[in-house]
């Protein structure tokens, strides 16, 4: 299967690979997918108290398109507000990377990862507020 230039670029020079401190109250972690299905994405977002995404890191087990999808969304979410990030859809990712139909699930996973990370952050904040 031939890959688009953008997939190859993100795959060969992935942006923002890495790990943020899970214990940091400002870090939300999204872990989506399943090893048995051949792809797992972990997206971590560092979100300021004002709701701005200050940093994003990912690690992905999956094919080239899955790696490229996660790399792309880390670039997109940085500097955005949580609400803006929530509007990123898999279609945007698929279009930007010119994913073929069999790879659409990779972009779906990237969207899910953003939502899961934000969800995790919100949960953390709630439990913090309850304690306070």
């Amino acid at each position: 299967m031939a890959y688009s230039d953008k997939v190859i670029d993100h795959y060969e020079n992935p942006r923002n690979v890495g790990t943020l401190d899970k214990a940091d109250p400002n870090v939300g972690t999204g872990l989506v997918g399943a090893p048995a299905c051949g792809d797992v994405m972990r997206l971590q977002l560092k979100i300021s108290d004002e709701g701005i995404i200050e940093d994003a890191k990912f690690k992905t087990f999956g094919c080239g398109s899955a790696i490229a999808s996660s790399s792309l969304v880390t670039e997109w979410v940085k500097g955005k507000t949580v609400d803006q990030a929530m509007t990123i859809s898999n279609k945007d990712v698929a279009r930007e990377l010119a994913l073929p139909p069999v790879k659409i699930h990779c972009s779906v996973l990237a969207e899910d990862a953003i939502k899961a990370a934000i969800e995790d952050f919100k949960k953390k904040r709630e439990s913090r507020q309850q304690k306070a």
Partner: peptide
Amino acid sequence: PLYEMAKEGIDLKSIEWTAH
């Protein structure tokens, strides 16, 4: 992420994965 978790000693089978 799986390699990192395995290295940390996390049992990957103990995690509830979201199959798609």
